[in-house]
Write a protein that binds this DNA or RNA. Structure first.
Length: 271
DNA sequence: AAGTGGACCTGCTAGC
DNA sequence: TGCTAGCAGGTCCACT
């Protein structure tokens, strides 16, 4: 579920309200992708600081150390005063006097990991190797062109990998390639310089627009207030196999790349 | 070393 | 109506 826009929308929906809140309890449910790495009770009494984002990870800073959170494929966070009884898929509660931050994640690919800092393990290990943020000024056509030319994978695969640029998952990688009119099967080292410019811009604008629209709610994504996103209503190719391309009318296709579905228009997305 | 495929886990949907 | 296969927004790890 959550790609950069969903994670950012989630962050924006609770960061201000939780800042300064004192932790009064922690509840841990079923195991997530990685163990918490600390006794949950050691969080009690600490005060939450800034909430920031790196790629699809959230970092809840405390006075010393912090929680690195990932929503996996099916995770979402809620932050409310009236938190009900924990359900079968509620695997982490951070209870504060201002409300409870609850991670709900049916598939449990998500994670909540305690780390002394972002520069130390385990956070460091998880964030090492991540590419540039899409809104980093250094993420431009030159950078993208150079990075893509170091590899020989399909350009869609390179975008999804996160080693070049973070944040575009399956929906937004497909959408950005449609926007840039690039065939997702194009080998990364065959993307021309002008098209790298176009693609860098498309990644940025696609993700930015998705944040403005509250992300994509395909089935169950909600921000921390319970608000659904609406980008999915504007998707040009994702999930539209068999339908006419809104730009050229050609039938949108679904193929499989690296065990992931790719949607594209064979009419106007060229190699 | 880089590229590929399997693994993790649960729920929903389409099709028989 | 009920069962089953296939599919889903991510990413780590083992293997070639």
């Amino acid at each position: 579920m959550p790609e950069l826009p969903e994670v950012e929308v989630t962050r924006l929906s609770f960061a201000e309200r939780i800042r300064g809140a004192r932790v009064i309890g922690v509840r841990v449910g079923k195991p997530l992708r990685w163990p918490l790495g600390a006794d949950p009770q050691t969080l009690v009494g600490r005060t939450v600081g800034d909430v920031s984002r790196r790629g699809k990870y959230l970092w809840l800073a405390f006075e010393r150390g912090g929680l690195l959170m990932h929503l996996g494929m099916s995770g979402s966070l809620a932050f409310t005063m009236q938190t009900g009884e924990a359900g079968a898929h509620d695997h982490f509660d951070l209870v504060t006097a201002r409300g409870t931050l609850r991670l709900t994640d049916p598939r449990r690919f998500g994670a909540v990991v305690w780390s002394p800092s972002l520069d130390e393990a385990p956070a460091h290990k998880l964030l090492a190797g991540l590419g540039l943020e899409p809104f980093d000024p250094r993420f431009d056509g030159t950078y993208l062109y150079t990075s893509l030319h170091r590899r020989k994978v399909a350009v869609k695969t390179a975008l999804l990998g996160g080693e070049v640029v973070v944040g575009a998952g399956n929906i937004y990688a497909c959408e950005a390639l449609w926007e840039a009119q690039i065939d997702p099967r194009t080998r990364s080292d065959r993307v021309s310089r002008p098209r790298a410019d176009h693609l860098a811009a498309a990644v940025r604008t696609t993700l930015a627009r998705a944040v403005e629209l509250g992300g994509s709610t395909l089935r169950d994504f909600r921000d921390a207030h319970g608000m659904a996103g609406s980008f999915q209503l504007q998707a040009r190719v994702y999930g539209r196999a068999g339908q006419a391309c809104v730009r050229c009318g050609t039938t949108v296709r679904r193929i499989v790349q690296g065990a992931r579905a790719t949607f594209f228009c064979p009419g106007c997305q060229k190699r």
